[in-house]
Design a protein around this nucleic acid. Structure first.
Lengths: 209, 209
DNA sequence: ATTGATATGTGAAAAAAGTCAAAACCGCAT
DNA sequence: ATGCGGTTTTGACTTTTTTCACATATCAAT
């Protein structure tokens, strides 16, 4: 997952949830927070938060804690979130359309720029703020607009083919909703979202009725 | 996450993806597989697969590998997947409705039994194979039917309230799509799905244009 | 039967991740 | 100024997880 970077991927993976909680606290009117309080809200330990942050330098003030505003700013910079990223969605089925309408992307700096599908009945229709384009134009749009991020919501059977095309066209990060294990080059960031896999993981702990 | 169990949670969390790949291979006509080949398809190492499986006993045959059919059966049993589980969805917005129509649950042993919402305009309408019920009937239905699993797709502002009600009513596993950090008792399995958090995690690795 | 190629299961070593606590530091009250 | 309570830093320590490598087992071919 991580390449030559010295910061472990597992640390990076926790930062977004810190950021989410910090934003929540900022909205509630907090100005400063200790690692202990933040840990309680995030659901981790104070030591872990301090250790994670220490990879990037010391952001806190001893005896006081962390300035929430300052810490948010720093985390956004670390995560390359101090800008708006454009993403495209491939597959305008139920899920693709629901994601295209989801406000949470725009609210957190991800603009859904385009939506592609292969079905002529769907191409041309308006979903949220974008018009569905034909998937044949996908590669050229990616290159023209220099898109780096794509969300895959196509049927499992064609997900790998789409992934290959996306990678070939220059996409660097893929959020895959299709229930298959995609194979992509190591240089491409792949995140899988499969609710069934996540549920299965919990079944192990459920008492058998 | 794991309590007194001797099998680490991180091991459990990998089993569903093994199972997914094994099912894929079975469909492709394979009958047997080595840890090496499976590892390549899953995207891990042979040693890790063998070590993981060894927590539950020896399923393979030396010199030959694993019988795919047998291994699928064993993993399903380990994960309590050798039965159909019922789940409910709370929140019939875009996402909740898309999930209610998603065939992937039924195909993999999760039956979406009921769908709840608070909006009188939506209550009573048919989504997929279920009719939307009023959220006020949620607790009684959970208890009457002994539901253990719930998917939360309500707005962030009310997610914690819903979670509290679900836990109180006896729900043991929650799949949370709301972009907030929920607080639940340790005895309740919580899995969060937030596409934005997963994307943010990849941004760190993207080159700045 | 014997050999060679292949593959598992597992204990031990290595690496990674997480925890702890002493030292340093800040701001405030006295 | 000084002392004190609270909190970060930092690095040593502990625990967990992953990797390694080898003894053992199977199968097919000779």
């Amino acid at each position: 997952m991580n390449d030559t970077s010295s910061v472990p991927d597992i640390v990076i993976s926790r930062l977004p949830s810190y950021l989410q909680t910090l934003n929540q606290m900022a909205k509630e009117g907090w100005h400063t927070v200790s690692s202990k309080v933040l840990a309680e809200r995030v659901g981790t330990t104070a030591a872990q938060i301090r250790k994670d942050l220490s990879f990037f330098g010391g952001f806190g003030k001893q005896g006081t804690g962390y300035s929430i505003y300052h810490l948010i700013e720093q985390l956004q910079k670390i995560l390359n979130m101090d800008r708006v990223w454009s993403a495209i969605i491939v597959g305008a089925g139920d899920l693709g359309r629901a994601l295209a309408r989801y406000q949470g992307f725009a609210q957190r700096g991800i603009e859904i720029a385009m939506l592609f599908d292969i079905d002529p009945k769907i191409v041309g229709t308006q979903i949220g703020s974008v018009v569905v384009r034909h998937v044949d134009t996908m590669e050229s749009e990616i290159q023209k607009n220099n898109f780096k991020i794509s969300i895959i919501t196509v049927p499992a059977a064609v997900a790998q083919i789409i992934a290959n095309r996306l990678v070939e066209a220059g996409i660097q990060a893929i959020l895959n909703y299709a229930p298959v294990t995609l194979i992509v080059p190591g240089s491409v960031q792949l995140q899988n979202i499969d609710p069934v896999l996540q549920l299965q993981r919990t079944l192990y702990y459920l008492s058998d009725d």
